[in-house]
Simulated scan of single mutants.
Amino acid sequence: MTDDRQGRDKQAIDAENRQRERDLATELERGDQPEPPREDGTLGEIETALESVSFPATGSAVVAAVGDREVESATDSYSVEELVPDEERFDSPAAVTVHLLWPTVAAATKQVLEAIKTVPHAELPWSRRKAYEKTFKELNDVDADDDNEGIGAISDWIVEYSHEREQLPGSRAVRRQAATFCRENGYQVRVDEWLGI
């Protein structure tokens, strides 16, 4: 491969795709963590309905196939349409399932992705997006019994920050804001944790 811009771009895209595959495998292994287990078999029904979708598929194709189905979180119920961004690209039904395992996180991520569309020149690299999602998951663990107020507060903060400054906050700034939220609301955050910044 030649050492020019096109070659470097291809290498970066290939590296990002490999990272996505590793992230997907890791998420599938941890699939039973922060959100409570679903006893109604909703995700199984969604996986069955996804058999009619040709993968790789966009979020809009997934929504067309299963958008009206509901996914339950600890405190709320979401339609798949509320959780899946239109431009999202899914490589397999398993990738959709992983995305839906944490509905509150998926809803916050979609809110952020939709807000970014209105910010000029704003792009969300995969690594920063994963850091945002990890922050949302940590907040889910911290206050899962309190309507996930922290996830909403931080996703709103990201959107507000992006519009005010016309750029996305760094993952460290998001973690710092999440830690501040936790401490102001009486949640313990240790320095050796993700939010302990």
Rank of each mutant, 00 (worst) to 15 (best):
D146C: 12
L168D: 00
W157R: 01
E123I: 08
R176G: 08
T180N: 14
A57I: 03
A131K: 01
A178R: 06
V96G: 09
T26S: 11
V71W: 02
W157Q: 03
P85W: 06
T97E: 14
E81N: 11
Q177T: 13
L43K: 05
G186Q: 08
A64Y: 10
P169L: 04
K130E: 15
V66G: 07
E160Q: 05
L100S: 01
T58V: 02
D143N: 08
Y187K: 09
V112Q: 04
N148F: 10
D156T: 06
G31Q: 14
R22K: 09
R18M: 13
R30K: 11
P125M: 06
D40M: 05
T109A: 09
T135R: 01
R18S: 14
E193N: 04
G186E: 03
A106Y: 00
L168R: 01
I13P: 01
G59S: 14
R190V: 08
E166D: 06
A122Y: 00
V80F: 01
T135I: 02
N17L: 12
Q167C: 11
D146F: 14
T75R: 14
R38E: 15
K117G: 15
L50Y: 05
P36L: 08
S52P: 09
V71I: 01
W157L: 06
L50G: 09
D91W: 07
A173Q: 11
P56R: 02
E138A: 05
L24P: 01
V84Q: 03
V119E: 00
D9A: 13
P37Q: 06
Y161D: 01
E35R: 07
P93M: 09
E35Q: 10
Y161F: 07
G196P: 00
V98A: 15
E149S: 13
D3K: 11
N17H: 12
G152H: 08
W102Q: 09
D86T: 03
T109C: 02
R129E: 15
R128L: 12
R128D: 15
R89M: 13
R183Y: 10
T180P: 12
Q33K: 12
E88P: 11
E29R: 13
A131L: 03
V84D: 02
P85T: 13
V84P: 02
T75E: 15
A12I: 06
R5Q: 10
T104V: 09
Q188K: 11
L195G: 04
E21T: 04
Y78L: 10
E149K: 15
Q111L: 12
V105Y: 00
Q111C: 08
Q6I: 09
G170F: 03
G196N: 02
E39N: 11
N17A: 15
N148W: 11
K130W: 06
P93N: 06
D9T: 13
S77H: 04
D23R: 00
D4S: 07
W102A: 13
M1A: 13
G41K: 08
N185K: 04
D91V: 05
A115W: 00
R176S: 13
W126Q: 12
R172S: 08
V112F: 05
E45G: 15
H163K: 07
L124E: 06
N140V: 07
V63M: 08
G196L: 02
V142G: 04
W126S: 07
Q111Y: 13
T75W: 14
L195K: 03
A12Y: 03
K110G: 03
K117W: 07
R129P: 11
T2L: 14
P36K: 05
T48P: 05
I158V: 12
M1S: 15
G170S: 08
